[in-house]
Design a protein around this nucleic acid. Structure first.
Lengths: 193, 193
DNA sequence: AAATAATCGTAAGCTTGCTTATTATATGCA
DNA sequence: TGCATATAATAAGCAAGCTTACGATTATTT
């Protein structure tokens, strides 16, 4: 069967193994700004708090309101580093409040995406809390989706984006929005055999 | 509104303008094997016939059966260079036969994808007849999706794929399947202002 | 000819994604 | 206080995407 996108079981179970993000590669490709993948043992409470704080700053700067539902939707996404479908978000929120209607979640997602706090993973019809707070909204971001644990890392815009756009332009095409989603196995899952 | 994927209006109307696929680019990026985009005035009958002939060869080589529905589904996809959703395919087929059930179309699509004759465009939940008959099934293909006319071109695996994989590996990620879908405006639509 | 496997059709239904109302509740400000 | 704007909730529903179950064909093999 070749279908995809519906079944994202994803075992969120804790894993051992430390992350050792390569700084330089055999083929000489330079490492990027920061490790794209969240280590399984990272301080998640902190990482969540940071992201929420960042969201508050962004909203304040833009004079946008970071309302409770918006915060809760972002919180639900932050609770894992996995992309969640809209209905998964609803299920998640239903645990701690009256089950919100789809429209409520979609509005919050629209808001969060418009403000660069959340990405949409096209190949999964799912949403992901944005990890890299420093990429400008116009440039492409590549997502690394681990098919084992379901976690998603980001590669911030880098040389590949230039190449990609150049390749597109070489056939006369004017690229605008790029969707780059790479499925594979993350460092941590590789170590588990 | 940030939604996408449902409304693919797509005017298939004939267009003027000749394709002049750039061979070399200002930034020195070399042109790829063949023009990625189908010119609006290309010999579509021929292109369809070629693709069907190719499909027959492939199936024979693999001792697979190229049955009527499979041919018809491929034919429906070939009738445009646009990606079609499963239900659009059903609508298309309904014009020339008894409306097929979803399962029927999905089965044919599974077959066609398994044999490399059709691609799935993840960001649209849609399917596209494969244009480049020479890319090996493992390597990445980038799709160029024109937001004006809806046509889709392919960039066969090239240098960018290497870079992309290298970038992924540089964070310890083992890439398998890459989804690279670039939205923008194609040569022909650019010329129409 | 019988058995097996592959393919196809019919019928039904489920989940997800997303939308359209319409009405309420804040929030700011004049 | 009154009014406007932004935000949210409630209710209902559509359509796309995909699946399960099962019986009927049609090859293919033995």
């Amino acid at each position: 069967m070749l279908s995809r996108g519906r079944s994202m079981a994803g075992s969120r179970a804790a894993r051992r193994a430390l992350g050792s993000p390569a700084e330089m590669l055999e083929d000489g490709y330079m490492s990027l700004a920061k490790p794209a993948f969240p280590a399984p043992d990272h301080d998640h409470g902190r990482c969540t708090a940071d992201a929420l704080a960042h969201a508050e700053v962004v909203c304040e700067q833009r004079a946008q309101k970071f309302t409770p539902i918006r915060r809760q939707v972002l919180g639900a996404l932050l609770s894992s580093h996995r992309p969640l479908g809209a209905y998964e978000i609803i299920d998640e929120l239903a645990k701690s409040m009256a089950r919100p209607a789809p429209i409520t979640v979609y509005r919050a997602l629209d808001f969060l995406m418009a403000n660069g706090l959340v990405h949409r993973i096209e190949s999964r019809n799912a949403y992901l809390a944005c990890a890299a707070h420093d990429h400008d909204s116009t440039s492409a971001v590549a997502f690394l989706i681990c098919e084992r644990c379901g976690l998603v890392g980001e590669i911030p815009s880098s040389s590949f984006a230039k190449d990609l756009n150049a390749a597109a332009r070489s056939s006369g095409f004017a690229p605008k929005l790029s969707v780059v989603e790479i499925t594979g196995v993350c460092t941590h899952c590789q170590k588990m055999s």
